[in-house]
Amino acid sequence: MKNIIAKLVVAAGLIVLSATAALAHSPLCSCFDNGDGTVLCEGGFSDGSSATGVKLFVRDDSGAVILKGAMNENSEFEFKKPAGHYTVTFDGGEGHSIEIDSSDIVE
């Protein structure tokens, strides 16, 4: 009887661990300079989930938010390119944020 209970506990533990791994997903976000004074960011998650509604923040060198918005129904966000150095933050929630430095955003 103890052997059967031990096997059930192990099986239940494996099921819980498998479910947790299946729910894990990483944020993905890339931004591109359109060459016309605008920047386009595209986002999503590694499990194929949409980024619709995910918040984005554009910050200046001091960390002040100069623009905020959200990914549209196509998981895109386009904005006017700020003057000088800036950082784009894709805020997919706790543990799911990405920061993109303006020096990494190219045409």
Rank of each mutant, 00 (worst) to 15 (best):
N3R: 11
N3C: 08
I4K: 14
I4L: 10
A6V: 15
A6R: 15
K7R: 15
K7H: 11
L8K: 15
V9P: 00
V9K: 09
V10W: 15
V10F: 08
A11R: 08
A12Q: 04
G13R: 01
G13D: 04
I15Y: 03
L17C: 09
L17Q: 07
L17V: 15
S18M: 13
A19D: 06
T20N: 04
A21I: 12
A24M: 12
S26N: 07
C29L: 07
C29E: 09
S30R: 07
S30H: 05
F32P: 01
F32S: 12
F32L: 15
D33Q: 05
D33W: 00
N34Y: 05
G35F: 08
D36T: 06
D36Q: 07
G37K: 06
T38S: 04
V39H: 00
V39I: 10
L40A: 14
C41T: 01
E42V: 14
G43M: 02
F45D: 05
F45L: 08
D47N: 13
S49Q: 13
S50D: 02
A51R: 07
A51L: 00
T52N: 14
G53A: 06
V54E: 09
K55L: 14
F57I: 03
F57K: 14
D60R: 06
D61L: 10
S62H: 10
G63R: 13
G63H: 03
A64Y: 10
V65M: 07
I66F: 04
L67T: 00
L67Q: 03
K68I: 07
G69R: 03
G69W: 03
A70Q: 12
N72S: 12
E73S: 12
E73R: 10
N74H: 12
S75W: 03
E76N: 15
F77H: 04
F77W: 13
F77Y: 12
F77A: 08
K80P: 00
K81D: 02
K81A: 05
P82L: 14
P82T: 11
P82W: 09
A83F: 01
G84E: 11
Y86A: 04
T87N: 06
V88Q: 02
F90I: 04
D91W: 12
E94W: 13
H96Y: 11
I98L: 09
E99C: 03
I100M: 01
I100N: 05
D101M: 06
D101K: 12
S103F: 07
S103V: 01
D104E: 12
D104Q: 14
E107V: 14
E107G: 11
E107M: 12
